[in-house]
Design a protein around this nucleic acid. Structure first.
Lengths: 333, 333
DNA sequence: CCGCTTTGTGCATACGCATACACTGACGAG
DNA sequence: CTCGTCAGTGTATGCGTATGCACAAAGCGG
């Protein structure tokens, strides 16, 4: 049988509420009693019931992280820092996945008695934020934002990174460039494309629509799209990729096509995932404090939960160009 | 305010228990009533409270996945299939991390009202399984097993894979081999080392202790250990790695040391993670049905929960050698 | 047409914890 | 010496759901 606060109370010779108070270190309980209660709890191996606490207090100290794609390397790198940060704040992380067509995700989130949600794969046209707002479930945007509802958010400003990357690319002689961008219904793909185009215009480099593809942020998708672009007679000498995972796909495509990187093709990613720094990959990319952003998202949702009237906060992370092997001089051909 | 089953009951003109029964499709409720209740619930946007249900039923339909290292690529590839499988079984996944020194993990698991736990990073000397058994919290071993307690388990038999890999390596002329194995307090490292040594003996290849390192299953650790071995004057022509992640590290080490793979060095991994098949990595390895194993672990824990008296089941997955670029002929030097 | 079964629903209660409120005793101010 | 105060603890209750049991109504065989 499971040990309850009643059992502890009996052993310590106090009432059940006193146990509850003592173990949560309530100031109104005398030190002597606290000691007795703690000893009794220890002795019995008492562990407070999460369900009882949740029902009584109305809070679960559980936070959902909503993703579409658990297989994606990008999200793997998010989960760990979010998890750690929430743990230090005394909260638990719960993963949730939504498929694009599934309209019941908000119900599923609500059903789980979450205190709040971190939205990591919001599309600009998603109604989930609206629903969450209706239901009064606090949430924050991570990386991507939705269009319909304002909320606390962490975002990356891609402009500085792209400005420097494009400047450098031009120096290296790249004039015929292509791009495998992310899905156009994501705020990240939109802001990155805008920043990229602005930087290209500033440097006088054209990016014809024929050399642009837009695909989901996956390695396989990146590979397929890159393969198309690389098969063109006027194939680009440099491929801007929507993120690192797509860039991995592009590297694979180049490899399959018998092109050497960076001799025949330069590739630029976005995110600076840990693997991008590996010698065997050595991907030039645009980086930012990805773990810090994950931590900030955790901080923001907790703050929102504990102070619902706090002012809206949109934390902006600067991006920076990270030069590596895969961006080198355009071959004079 | 949150909608409760009482509100639904009022609207549908029935009692609260009838709502509870109707929504869970209890056979004793008439079809007409069910329809009325469902409509009322729909109208009010009723979502059953997880906490109330948990308190009343004593079950949460929540299962923990215990890991040490969320950053590790191996575990990233586990999470998705486990999550999916549990979802189809009507359970929720909850991630938990333990640090090696932390002795309170079992308390933390209990405190979260889990119905069961999947242990994915058990060391052979871990007492966690003992504690879990004491507390009556069902659990299964995933991949690794502990020594003190029997439980449902999914494991890999590395012997077939290593037999074939070593046979092939010998054909390719490798005679001076090294190994970067996993930590010796894991059942996987133990069984893989045994299988590897047996295969080597069968083929008459020596594996001197000077050419063996044992490190945690991480890329950085693999890189450091491989660097040591590659710096030796009698450096091996083939490196057996404890798993793919360690092998990635070894590839990085080779790259940094200016050695070309496979011309100067062959590398063999274990697990056949999706990235291993990427053209830019193309890692020879020993594979098995890793997603199937994850699904099976999920199935086993659910079965154990729903039928505590079920017979112990240890599911064994066969391994198979996966030839790829990184294992090629030893250079005659 | 009566009593028994079957079907459908309500009533009462339990789950474990937190919290508003009441209460007791000790202490100090007047 | 009395009364107010306050620290410390207990009492009562609520949170939302599930379930054992009682009960009413309908169906049915004899």
């Amino acid at each position: 049988m499971v040990v309850t606060s009643r059992d502890v109370a009996r052993l310590a010779g106090v009432s059940q509420p006193t146990v509850s108070r003592a173990l949560r270190d309530d100031a109104r309980v005398s030190e002597a009693t606290k000691v007795r209660v703690r000893e009794a709890a220890q002795l019995l191996g008492y562990v407070p019931s999460e369900a009882g606490r949740a029902l009584s207090s109305g809070r679960t100290r559980r936070i959902g992280l909503l993703l579409t794609d658990l297989d994606n390397q990008f999200y793997s790198h998010i989960i760990a820092p979010v998890h750690r940060e929430l743990e230090t704040l005394g909260y638990q992380l719960m993963l949730h996945t939504e498929s694009a067509d599934n309209d019941t995700i908000v119900e599923r989130l609500l059903a789980n008695g979450l205190d709040g949600v971190i939205l990591a794969t919001t599309t600009v046209d998603s109604v989930a934020p609206l629903r969450l707002k209706d239901r009064g479930l606090p949430f924050v945007y991570f990386n991507r934002t939705g269009s319909f509802v304002e909320a606390d958010a962490t975002v990356v400003d891609p402009a500085p990174g792209y400005r420097e990357a494009v400047r450098r690319a031009v120096e290296l002689g790249h004039a015929r460039v292509g791009a495998v961008l992310g899905p156009s219904n994501t705020s990240t793909a939109q802001s990155r494309e805008a920043a990229l185009r602005e930087a290209l215009v500033a440097e006088g480099v054209a990016l014809p629509e024929s050399h642009v593809r837009r695909v989901p942020y996956g390695a396989a998708e990146g590979e397929a799209a890159a393969s198309e672009l690389l098969a063109r007679p006027d194939r680009p000498t440099l491929l801007f990729c929507g993120n690192d995972v797509v860039a991995y796909g592009a590297l694979n495509a180049a490899h399959r096509a018998g092109l050497r990187v960076p001799h025949d093709l330069s590739v630029l990613g976005f995110d600076d995932l840990p693997e991008a720094a590996w010698p065997i990959i050595d991907l030039a990319t645009i980086g930012y404090d990805i773990a810090g952003m994950a931590r900030t998202a955790a901080d923001l949702i907790v703050r929102r939960i504990e102070d619902p009237s706090a002012e809206l906060e949109k934390t902006r992370f600067e991006s920076v160009f990270v030069p590596r092997r895969t961006l080198a001089a355009a071959r004079a051909d």
